[in-house]
Amino acid sequence: MRAGPASSPCLVVTLGEPSGVGPDIALDAYRRRAERKLAPFAVFADPAMLRARADRLGYDIPFREIDSPDETAAAFAAALPILPLVNRQDERPGRLDPFNALGTVEAIDRAAAAVLDGRAGAMVTGPIDKKALYDAGFRHPGHTEYLADLCAARGAGSFMPVMLLAGPELSCVPVTIHVPLRDVPELLTTALIVETGRIVADHYVRHFGIARPRIAVSGLNPHAGERGAIGREDEDVIAPAVARLAAEGIQAFGPLPADTMFHAEARAGYDVALCMYHDQALIPAKALAFDETVNVTLGLPLIRTSPDHGTAATLAGTGRARPASFMAALVLADRMVRRAAIRAA
């Protein structure tokens, strides 16, 4: 089941871990909404917790509690719309408490449902703390995997989520993500690379308006294996995947040596880099534009973006958390919603 374009272009926001900077950056983004001409967004939150954080930060922000995302646009110019949570949350910056977990998960559940039902265009998620959720009984590997399960529960089949780090200078996708480096060679298969490449190509067409996205595929080993002299994975696993993608009409090429594919001249030759493991993708993306890079989840029947950083609990409540990546996530989510609406028209 794929959600159609929302009747309202509003975005819904989840704050993630309330003891982290999620509340801070959402509040600051609303204060600065005119700087980036942000689309209307509503926040799933405990109103008392969010008001307390605003008071701690010294932000004079008016709030309006609403019953449905449909009310967001009418409220947004004068007040930050809040969709109140049933589960209460404590406002204690930097202090993890499993008590807050029910509200964190409730927000994710309700935001995903709003997008899947067409009552909102996209969800923008604040960073969670998995340890806090695990201590409260959460049994999913992470945020993205939980969203995939929520989507699967709403329709037939299953979904394969793909992480895209989208930045102004470089966009990267890791084929394997949060796994030990020693496990990558065994997990990396031709089929996995092909399926990841298909999902990336499809989303670039549908959500970014690029008819034939150019996908640069990295090698795994130094110098892409030196034709098998430094490991066989590049020749035996990655090259066949690139050939299969190309045979399907996808403009993929590689495997390329990872140490030479991220400089400015090389980046000009592709739209997105398909990398073999987490740090191979995230290090260059964050090094080039940490504050402007957005984490986008591909492969799900909803649009979801998030900032590229974690909870940063030591900055929570201090006023020193920078909202740039979160604001970029809002901007990109709105752009993807509008692109999807154009294609559906």
Rank of each mutant, 00 (worst) to 15 (best):
V105Y: 08
P240M: 03
G157W: 08
I108F: 03
A3F: 05
M336Q: 03
L85N: 15
A201H: 06
T260P: 01
D55K: 07
R110E: 10
R320Q: 10
L288R: 06
V12F: 13
D334K: 13
R2L: 12
R64K: 13
L50W: 11
P69R: 08
V205I: 05
H143D: 06
T305E: 04
L96I: 12
V237L: 02
D149M: 11
E248P: 14
A45Q: 13
A252E: 00
T144R: 02
D236Q: 09
L256G: 01
N221I: 01
H223T: 06
L147D: 09
F208S: 00
V124I: 03
F262Y: 02
L187P: 05
F41N: 14
L220Q: 00
R267I: 04
D135Q: 14
I25C: 10
D183E: 08
M160E: 07
P98F: 09
V184G: 02
D46V: 15
P168F: 00
A48R: 15
I82Y: 07
P93S: 08
P84S: 03
V217P: 01
R343E: 10
L150K: 09
K286E: 04
D135M: 10
S306H: 07
S218D: 03
A229F: 14
G157K: 15
H207L: 04
P161M: 03
T311H: 14
H207D: 04
A268Q: 10
R88M: 11
E233Y: 06
V179P: 05
S19P: 15
Y134I: 12
P307G: 07
R320A: 09
K131Q: 13
G299F: 00
V337I: 05
A113M: 09
L27K: 15
A39M: 13
P40I: 15
G299I: 00
R95G: 05
D28Y: 14
T314G: 07
A268M: 08
V184H: 03
L164V: 01
P47I: 13
R92E: 06
L85E: 09
F44V: 15
